[in-house]
Structures are given as C-alpha cells and as structure tokens.
Simulated scan of single mutants.
Amino acid sequence: MNLAVGLPEKMVYGEDREMMTAIRKVPVAEAYLSKESFEGDGVADKKHHGGRDRAVCIYPFEHYALWEEQFGQRLPAATFGENLTVTQMLEKDVFIGDVFQVGEAVIQVTQGRVPCNTIDRRMDMAPLMKAMVKTGFTGYMCRVIEEGAIRRDSEIRLVERGKGEVSVLYANDVNFHQSRNAEAIRRVLEAHALAPEWQDWLTKKLIKLTE
C-alpha cells in the first residue's frame, strides 16, 4: 500500500497555464486520519472534492499497468491524487458501504471517484479522464468512521460488507452510462451508505424518469 498526502499548490500545465490543485500528493510513512481528511492533506476545489463523505481517496494499483501501456508513459506514485494506492481491491470487488480497518482507522466506501480533467493536466495524458470514465476504473471515496493513524505498511482488513451488494464498478456504470435505467438507479439507491450527493443526484434522475 502507498500512503500519500498533499495540500493545494500551483501547478503549471499545457502552454504555461496555471491552476491550484492538491493532486500531486507525496508519499509519507504515516499520517493521522480525522473525520475530515488526513493530516497534511487538502483540496483546492471544495465544491467538487473533499468533505466528510470523500475524506479518503483510494485507487487500485493494478490499473497503473493498464494506463502505462495504453498511454506509453510511466506513472509516479499517487498519480491520480489518491491517498491510498491498494492491491486486490478493484472496483468490481469493493461495494458501496464496505467497512475497512486500516491501521488505527476505520473507513467506509461511499461512492466511486468522479474524475476531473486535472488528471489529464497533471500528466498531459488526455484523454485519460475519459478512459477512466469509460472503464469505470476511477477508484473510490470513503468516509471515516473511526479516526486514527495509518502507516504505509498498515494492513487493510474488510470488517463489514456493504448492504445491497452494489459494487463501485456497478455504481460507476449506472452513474456514467445508465442514467436512463430506472431499475439500475433504484438498485444503487438501495446502498444505504451511498454518499448523500450521489443519493440526491440519482434520486432526481429517477424522479424525471418516472414522472
């Protein structure tokens, strides 16, 4: 597992364009995780990132090889701005509501990560963001149930399986590609641990479909 944190900083991309972003996180040996975020971690765009339901960002390490092969470029640690880079925790195998013990902390999966074009800008790898959305290989976000210290060698252990058995990959597919499938939307909404923002978004879609 890789553990990384970072605060917003100026990033130059494209033809000398600038933006504030915290995507360039730095590997650390240990960090304390509170309800809000890791100590030393932050976001620049608070409207679309961060908050208690998105306190931790996780990305499966297995996808790195796919993107490196597809784009012909080596990727540094925490390329996608994730806090935890993990193995054997793919989106198809992790469910909304899953509870994990990580070091001293306990976290719960709340939603798939919604990628933004900052990912393309960081590595100059457009259309990586579109490829992530197409495949659903976005990683996922978690809320913090119990605060505590996490080390890069901490074990990640499944404590409880999310009710409804809605995988992150399925939720991503519905959100990105099946926005007119009322039955699929209902199934995702049955995952009670789903982040309120996704609950509101999908509920509005469902109302429009069933009016």
Rank of each mutant, 00 (worst) to 15 (best):
M125P: 01
P8N: 10
G51P: 05
L33H: 03
A78P: 04
E155F: 05
F137S: 12
I23K: 14
V159F: 01
P76A: 09
A105C: 08
G103L: 10
A182H: 10
E197F: 07
V166M: 09
V109A: 02
M20C: 00
E9A: 15
H63D: 02
K25E: 04
K35Y: 14
M132P: 01
G42S: 07
G148R: 07
K130N: 10
T85P: 11
A105H: 03
R187N: 13
S167I: 00
T21M: 05
E18L: 02
P8E: 13
L202F: 11
D98H: 00
C57R: 03
N2F: 10
A22R: 00
A126S: 14
G72M: 02
K46Q: 06
G148D: 12
E15A: 04
V106Y: 02
S37A: 11
R17P: 00
G6W: 03
S154H: 00
C57F: 15
L128H: 07
G148Q: 06
M125K: 07
P27T: 02
N172P: 00
M123Y: 03
A65Q: 13
D153R: 10
G164A: 08
R122S: 12
R74I: 01
A105F: 06
F100N: 08
F61N: 06
A4Y: 01
L33C: 08
D153N: 14
G50K: 00
L84W: 06
V43A: 11
L33G: 06
A55G: 11
L84D: 03
A29L: 00
E82L: 07
D98Q: 01
Y170P: 00
M1K: 03
N175S: 13
K92R: 14
A131R: 15
G139E: 01
M11G: 11
C57D: 05
Y64K: 08
I119V: 15
T203K: 14
W67D: 05
F38G: 01
E30H: 04
A65L: 10
E155I: 04
T79W: 13
R24G: 15
Q70H: 07
T210M: 15
R151F: 12
L194P: 09
K46N: 12
K205M: 10
S179D: 14
M11F: 14
G50Q: 04
V174C: 12
I119S: 02
N117H: 15
F176I: 08
R157E: 05
D16V: 06
V109Y: 11
V168M: 06
D98I: 05
I150Q: 10
K205V: 02
W198D: 01
E160I: 04
D98V: 08
V28I: 07
A193M: 11
E15K: 15
V102N: 01
